Amino acid sequence: MSDDNPHSSRGSASRSWLERIASIFTAEPQDISDLEDIISEASMRQLIDSDTKDMLQGVLDVSKVRARDIMVPRSQMATIDIEQPLAEILPILLENNHSRYPVVNEDKDHIEGILIVKDLLQYALDPNNNDWQWLDLVRPAVIIPESKRVDALLREFRQKRYHMAIVVDEYGGVSGLVTIEDILEQIVGEIEDEHDDAEEHDIKKMASRVFQVSALTPLDEFNETFGTQFDEEDADTIGGIVLHAFGHMPARGESIALGDLTFKVSKANSRRLMQLQVIRAREAEPEGS
């Protein structure tokens, strides 16, 4: 009968597909693998494209992720000191191009609040506003533990309409920060803005022995900067070298030592490395640095 009516087999397959979806949502799934199987089959049948599959998988993965897994590490936080005059703050804003900055008192363990650039510009560009101090614009900071689930944090971001949270460890010390963009990138992949291309291959010195390095930095540029001799036949970028050394796609926070350098993943998604923190061993530090 199916030979005489080719639509019959397709109709049967469609009913089977719909029945499987229905069974997932009407029954109580034992684990998330049931949903993952449905998503994989939908992609194989070309009912959804690969980008949609990755996004759906990202939604499922968010429930497994904690704030410590996606936070911007403390060493990479761009902050403003409460004692800085406005003239010193503006270059920081221009260099980093963020929309929000933690305001600290002496060090990063003492967060006084959050400065939103939009608030600052509103006052700075209004010629009628002469009697104001930038400290008056600082908003309270949201503090969360490292163990905070990211799906719960996203819900709070939406409900309470804030976009940044300061992450603290079990002793109350600041570990880093999380923004709503960090969470969305776990779902949809990297969100690039107009500044990303300009910064893509940067090697930025954060401290005497600590550097922020794009994973896409060409290997010859990295070797020249750090005096290393990674083989350019093994990879085109430093990210390729690090990925090969790990032997798997590392998550944020994972680290590995290669020679005198320690590489810590500071930004990554399920598909690629984006940013690395590179730390020189003390004995490898050049004289005078």
Rank of each mutant, 00 (worst) to 15 (best):
E170Y: 06
I203T: 09
V174G: 00
V213E: 01
L219E: 10
E199D: 15
I180L: 10
V210P: 01
T179G: 10
D197G: 13
V174W: 00
T217E: 03
D169R: 05
G176H: 10
S208P: 07
E181Q: 13
H195Q: 12
E192W: 04
Q212E: 12
V167P: 07
E194W: 12
D220S: 13
E170K: 10
G189E: 10
K205C: 03
E194M: 12
V178D: 09
H195F: 12
I183W: 11
T179P: 03
Q186E: 15
H163A: 08
V188S: 02
A207K: 12
E199R: 11
I191M: 09
D169A: 04
A215R: 00
E194R: 14
T217W: 00
I180P: 05
G189N: 08
V174E: 00
S214F: 02
K204A: 10
E185K: 09
G173I: 00
Y171S: 11
Q159H: 14
Q159F: 03
G189W: 03
E221H: 11
S175Q: 09
A207C: 07
E194S: 15
S175L: 07
D202P: 05
D197A: 15
E199W: 02
D182H: 13
Y162H: 07
L177A: 05
E170V: 06
Y162G: 01
F211Y: 15
